[in-house]
Design a binder for these strands. Structure first.
Lengths: 133, 133
DNA sequence: GCTATTGTACTAGTGTAGTAGTTCATTAGC
DNA sequence: GCTAATGAACTACTACACTAGTACAATAGC
């Protein structure tokens, strides 16, 4: 089977962060279903030719973010506690946090709320070209 | 005279970044006028009890961001080339960049444009409480 | 219980960001 | 020109993030 994830050690972005983002994206997009098992730490480390600790760190933070559940001897699984939207909610929380940080920085630079809304529309146009509200 | 800027070495935020943000904020809010001279590298370093290189680094990045102009023997001044809005524009560009980065991360997490707008309103409510559009 | 497989913990090496100490080049003003 | 002031450049130290190597503990399945 083709490898599910891929990382670029030379990208400058830490490997464990690349893994975290890919897992969250896969969960948010439904590529990974609730309850589905992730590759084991050692198998994924072997596949990506990185150290098991690097994969373990990514999984540890994903568990901290309530995206996956993991336990020794069993493996790591996409979280499936109750409503299936819980996981997506957790992912959305991360996105919200990123936006919140950006808004705080804008405010510290003297921008008011309307100015920030204008800036956001510009950013949306950049990353979602052709979509008008 | 009271010191214009203040830094906290124990905050975890690099000193030079604290300085950059304070200068940009002062420029954006009009506390520092176009053409106004900033404290010299060595005077500010002495005042804040940090190394001249730390202040110099902040000034260097501020010049890279087109916020100030600096030259040896003269000092550092708030940029005043033509329209006075150029400097504020430069500051706004930084804010726009922060938002753009956040939007890119949200998109990578599977959020679409409407979802991001909703998240932004939440962030605005957090940092600008009581302001409804 | 025994074994294989899982994630975890401990230690260490490597690179880089941040800061400091000091010296050098450039400019203004007389 | 001479002097004093300015920012720039160079080196080095420190802390921390990132990754790797290896050994350990916990669990599942028989």
């Amino acid at each position: 089977m083709p490898p599910i994830f891929s990382v670029d050690p030379r990208s400058g972005i830490p490997i464990y962060l690349q893994l975290i983002e890919q897992v969250k994206r896969a969960v948010a997009l439904g590529t990974l279903d609730s309850g589905e098992q992730l590759p084991t730490v050692k198998a994924l480390a072997l596949d990506l030719t990185v150290n098991p600790n690097t994969v373990a760190r990514a999984y540890r933070e994903l568990e901290r973010d309530r995206v996956i559940e993991t336990s020794p001897g069993r493996g790591s699984f996409v979280r499936a506690d109750g409503s299936p939207s819980v996981v997506k909610r957790a992912v959305t929380d991360v996105a919200a946090s990123a936006l919140s940080d950006a808004v705080r920085e804008c405010r510290s630079l003297g921008c008011d709320a309307p100015a920030i809304r204008t800036l956001l529309e510009g950013a949306l146009e950049r990353w979602f070209p052709g979509e008008n509200s």
